[in-house]
Amino acid sequence: MRPSARDVQRRLALVPYLQSKQGVSVDEVAREFGVKPRVIRKDVEQLMMTGAGSLGGELIDIDLFAFEDDDRIYISNADFMTRPMRINAGEASALIVALRALRDATSGEHLAVVDSALTKLHDAVGGQATDAVEVVLESVDQGILATVRQALGDRRRLEIVYATLSRDAITTRQVDPIATFVREGHEYLDAWCHLAGGQRYFRLDRIESAEVLDVPVEKRAVPARNADDGFFSPGDGGLRVELAVAPSSRWIVEHYDADVLDDSDDVWTVSLVASDEAWVRRLALRSAGAVRVLAPDSARAQVTEHARSALTAYDGTTSATKET
């Protein structure tokens, strides 16, 4: 499960605390930080994999014998946590670009924190950091963004009206929010969807309305996910299709998050994940020939069959009249 901001803050505060209280018991640390002892044990295990590098002597050192046998914590080799961070112009530029993206996806009191960090970075590197990179995110309704962040902060359920473009439908769902993140210019909500009965990603610019409910989020074990998990994969119940798209229908690429496989000709070959073959059929038939289904064969055959049936009905003929 992705660590929350509260988890990160606690682990950062834990290092100087443990340095000042060598040999403190796990139970005492848990009482001090207001969490259960098992949470502190997990934090300490995480700290053992943290450091200025990945080589011996670069990681935080914990006395394992005291930790495992006596539930007491002795910490060393963690002085790097208190040293001022040194970065070069290239690293500063990367951080500035990331913070600009974060700023575009942030609202409320968090803006001041991001702006403060940006100012400090600019001041630290002077004019060396590049301003050539501009981060552009899809516009998100600020009211909806604020509502989502409120639900996350209060750990409350959300009711959203969501445009599910791959199914060409609008649905009302109740979701338990987990986190938000930015991927390829879009901000997403990671949440447990009660309608789908599973963990799903929702693009914030496709949420038409959002309301915080007076219902706490349910406690459940959810699998660890990163920003590439769960994006339009056939294993998630979708159908991977390949299409030939004429210039007049290239809006499909952006509208349905399609992957461009070949754009060397006027007619592009693209791939996207749809809910089922019926949706693919509707997309192809309403395009008036600007979209052709290349794969899978079953979807292509379905489009051909329905097009032939439509032409037959238009001509005023039926299979029965043709046989007579």
Results as ranks from 00 to 15, higher is better:
207 I>L: 09
96 I>T: 03
267 V>I: 11
189 L>F: 09
49 M>V: 03
272 L>P: 02
308 R>F: 03
212 V>G: 05
200 R>E: 04
205 D>A: 12
303 V>D: 01
230 G>V: 02
255 H>G: 06
311 L>T: 12
80 F>S: 02
162 Y>F: 09
262 D>Y: 08
225 R>T: 04
94 A>Q: 08
135 V>I: 15
235 G>W: 14
142 Q>G: 04
307 A>K: 03
112 A>Y: 13
105 A>N: 03
255 H>S: 08
208 E>I: 10
246 A>C: 04
14 L>K: 10
218 E>I: 11
23 G>W: 13
292 R>C: 01
16 P>F: 07
151 A>W: 03
187 E>H: 06
270 V>N: 00
93 S>A: 13
134 E>L: 09
294 L>I: 15
38 R>Y: 14
233 S>Q: 11
38 R>K: 15
171 T>W: 09
8 V>D: 00
82 T>D: 14
123 D>H: 10
65 F>D: 14
115 D>L: 12
147 T>F: 15
131 D>E: 13
323 E>C: 02
54 S>C: 08
228 D>H: 10
133 V>W: 03
58 E>Y: 13
242 E>K: 15
125 V>K: 09
41 R>F: 01
274 A>F: 12
299 A>L: 07
210 A>H: 00
189 L>Y: 07
249 S>G: 11
292 R>D: 03
303 V>E: 03
308 R>I: 11
253 V>A: 10
17 Y>D: 00
108 G>T: 08
149 R>F: 12
212 V>D: 02
224 A>V: 07
288 A>R: 09
238 G>W: 13
206 R>A: 02
183 R>Y: 10
57 G>Y: 10
7 D>M: 10
138 E>K: 15
151 A>H: 01
63 D>K: 05
171 T>S: 15
218 E>F: 06
170 I>R: 15
215 V>P: 01
83 R>T: 07
272 L>E: 00
16 P>K: 12
316 G>E: 09
191 A>G: 03
83 R>S: 08
27 D>H: 09
192 W>N: 06
322 K>G: 04
42 K>D: 10
209 S>Q: 11
74 Y>L: 07
220 R>G: 05
71 D>V: 06
153 G>S: 15
